[in-house]
């Protein structure tokens, strides 16, 4: 079975025909060409496919595209605005929050989901929010630091 879905992907309204069984990660990667969301474990265990659905983090590899009909989807590709990196992207770049880079899109989107609801998270809150995201380079210290510095940079910029 197929159906028409209306999605807002990174600010762009799209209407598309999808199979009922199509997963969101496959839709984004294969149909939209947005390959930032990664297929790591492909089973909801590693967080590399994390995107935001209506502002909340979701695992795109265990989400049916048809089940998010009408939703606003944000991926790593939509984070930089007018050629400027987002606060999290800049912080990951400047503080070595990225090593091999495979987990980075998922890490940044999960962190973005946290900062949307909590602009000044504690270290424990960051650890909890990123608890479902694996980094096999094991660069967790720098990742947590990057999120803290992004939160601080955003707070300073809005003062």
């Amino acid at each position: 079975m197929k159906r028409i879905v209306n999605l807002n992907v990174n600010g762009r309204q799209v209407e598309d025909v999808v199979a009922d069984s199509l997963l969101l990660v496959d839709y984004l990667r294969d149909r939209q060409g947005l390959t930032g969301a990664k297929k790591g474990c492909d089973g909801g265990e590693c967080g590399a496919c994390t995107v935001l659905v209506d502002g909340r983090p979701r695992l795109a590899c265990i989400t049916l595209a048809a089940s998010v009909d009408g939703a606003k989807i944000e991926t790593i590709e939509g984070q930089a605005k007018n050629g400027r990196l987002s606060a999290l992207q800049r912080a990951f770049h400047e503080n070595l929050g990225t090593q091999c880079g495979f987990c980075t899109p998922g890490m940044i989107m999960a962190a973005e989901g946290l900062l949307k609801s909590n602009s000044d998270p504690t270290e424990d809150q960051i650890k909890t929010a990123l608890g479902g995201n694996l980094c096999r380079c094991t660069g967790y210290v720098k990742i947590i630091r990057s999120v803290q510095l992004a939160a601080r940079a955003t707070a300073e910029a809005t003062q």
Partner: peptide, 13 residues
């Protein structure tokens, strides 16, 4: 894992 999803119909009551 990378196995394909089976075909099914999605009902959204």
């Amino acid at each position: 894992m990378s196995e394909v999803m089976p075909d099914f119909q999605l009902a959204r009551p």
